Computed example of a mutant assay.
Amino acid sequence: MGMYASIRGWLEIDVKQRVTAEQIIEQNRHELYSGGWAFPSAPFNWSLYLFYGGDIRQGELSWLRGQVEQLAEIPPVDEDNDWPRGLFVVTAEERDGAQMWQVREATVTELPAPGLSWLGE
Rank of each mutant, 00 (worst) to 15 (best):
M3I: 14
Y4I: 10
A5Y: 01
S6W: 10
I7A: 00
R8K: 13
R8S: 15
G9I: 10
G9T: 11
G9R: 08
W10H: 12
I13L: 11
D14F: 02
V15S: 06
K16W: 05
Q17G: 01
Q17V: 01
R18K: 14
R18I: 04
V19I: 10
V19A: 13
V19R: 12
T20V: 11
A21D: 04
Q23H: 14
Q23A: 14
I24C: 10
I25N: 05
Q27D: 15
R29Q: 13
H30S: 12
H30P: 05
E31G: 04
Y33W: 15
Y33T: 12
S34Q: 11
G36F: 09
G36A: 12
G36D: 07
W37R: 06
W37L: 08
W37A: 05
A38T: 13
F39H: 09
F39T: 08
F39D: 06
P40T: 09
S41P: 01
P43K: 09
P43D: 08
P43H: 11
F44L: 11
N45K: 11
L50T: 03
Y52R: 03
D55M: 15
I56L: 15
I56Q: 07
R57K: 13
E60V: 09
S62F: 06
L64Y: 10
R65K: 15
R65I: 07
G66V: 08
Q70E: 15
Q70L: 15
Q70Y: 07
Q70R: 15
Q70S: 13
I74C: 02
I74H: 02
P76H: 09
P76A: 12
V77L: 04
D80H: 07
D80T: 04
N81I: 06
D82P: 01
D82Y: 07
W83D: 02
W83E: 02
P84C: 03
P84W: 02
P84F: 03
P84M: 03
P84V: 04
R85Q: 10
R85W: 09
G86K: 02
L87Q: 07
F88M: 02
F88A: 00
F88L: 04
F88Y: 06
F88Q: 00
V89H: 09
V90A: 01
E93M: 13
E94V: 09
E94R: 12
R95S: 12
G97K: 03
A98F: 05
Q99M: 11
M100S: 15
V103N: 02
V103K: 01
E105G: 03
A106Y: 01
T107A: 14
T109A: 11
T109W: 03
P114H: 06
G115F: 05
L116G: 00
S117L: 06
S117P: 04
W118H: 12
W118N: 03
W118R: 06
G120E: 05
G120M: 06
